[in-house]
Simulated assay, not measured.
Amino acid sequence: MTFSIVARLGEAYGVAVASKFLAVGAVVPGARIGVGAVATQSWARVAYIPELLARLEAGEPADSALESVTAMDPGGATRQVGVVGRESVATFTGDECIPWCGGVARSSDDGESAYAIQGNILVGPEVVDEMERAWLASAGSTLPQRLLAALVAGDAAGGDSRGRQSAAIYAVEPGAGYDRSGVAADLRVDDHADPVTELSRLLDEWEMYFGRPEGVQPLEGELAAEVGRLLERLGHAPAAGEGAAGVEAALAAWAGEVNYEARLAPGGIDRRVLQALRETAGAPPS
């Protein structure tokens, strides 16, 4: 009923999943900073998430942990699970999962990343194949972006043979997210005609609100003057006579109003904040 990717990229762990099932994000994904990530699906056993994360935290390899929990489970033959830890990765598809079903689990040669991709009731193995290609092709992007790229590719390849309904992404990384609490992405589309596309839109919004500053330009000279003019249009005129410091203070006030404060950069302006400011104030494209 589901296709997913569980992955590690450096110190980041996460899961992306889609299904013809209501609120798949409430069932399948789990991750813990410094430990690993788990996706439990098919006839999902949600208890696998804390059980497997506890085993990973204790130092047990992913394949051994997965073998142990499924062997002790009377319904193990109906389960499908992907697990990634600090130095290990594994996927499991029980003999009673509904075809097409299967998965792959691999680590990069340099040890910097690992992924497990799995699915059941899919249109065919091409879903997993395309997800793997997309993951590999997206090298250089953040973990949430790479997870999403794989999910988009699986969806485009046909995904769940019964159709579409929900999708989710959950990722953790030290210092990421709102107040740098470590949640790099936590998004769910619970019931939608095109959930993966909607999830893509939401991840872009998430990164705008909670992402780190990027492409920062010094707030000085003509740029500072432009930013000051744009802020004045929006009712946040910089204090007279304070120069760039006044512009920066006015920018902070506006950013707090529209919830972009996570992207504030001392002495400069984030690329995406500048774009949003220009669009909101009605400035022509630069």
Rank of each mutant, 00 (worst) to 15 (best):
Thr142Lys: 05
Pro213Met: 12
Ala252Phe: 02
Ala54Trp: 00
Arg133Pro: 05
Gly158Asn: 02
His192Ser: 10
Ser138Gln: 14
Ser113Ala: 15
Asp179Met: 06
Asp179Arg: 14
Ala239Tyr: 02
Glu126Lys: 10
Ile121Thr: 13
Tyr260Val: 06
Cys101Glu: 04
Val84Met: 12
Arg272His: 13
Gly215Gln: 06
Leu219Ile: 12
Met208Gln: 12
Ala255Val: 11
Arg32Tyr: 08
Met131Arg: 10
Ser108Val: 09
Val17Phe: 02
Gly221Phe: 04
Leu53Phe: 03
Leu231Ala: 04
Gln145Glu: 15
Ile269Glu: 08
Cys101Arg: 14
Gly10Asp: 08
Glu279Leu: 15
Ala150Glu: 08
Gln165His: 03
Thr2Pro: 02
Ser64Ala: 13
Gly256Glu: 06
Gln145Cys: 05
Arg106Ile: 10
Pro29Asn: 01
Cys101Gly: 15
Thr40Ser: 14
Leu52Lys: 05
Ala105Phe: 00
Arg162Trp: 01
Thr91Met: 14
Ala249Gln: 13
Pro195Phe: 10
Gly30Lys: 04
Val35Gln: 10
Arg229Asn: 03
Ala276Gln: 12
Thr197Glu: 14
Ala255Trp: 04
Tyr115Cys: 05
Arg55Lys: 13
Glu226Met: 08
Val216Met: 09
Leu223Gly: 01
Tyr178Leu: 14
Gly111Ser: 08
Pro213Ile: 06
Gly154Trp: 10
Val84Gln: 13
Leu136Ser: 11
Gly59Thr: 07
Cys97Met: 08
Tyr260Met: 12
Ala90Gly: 08
Ala23Trp: 05
Met208Asn: 12
Val35Asn: 05
Leu199Ser: 02
Ala255Ile: 08
Ala252Arg: 11
Val17Leu: 05
Ile33Arg: 15
Val46Trp: 13
Leu251Gln: 07
Leu136Asp: 14
Ile49Cys: 02
Ala71Pro: 08
Ala90Gln: 07
Thr70Ala: 00
Gly111Ala: 11
Glu248Arg: 02
Leu231Thr: 00
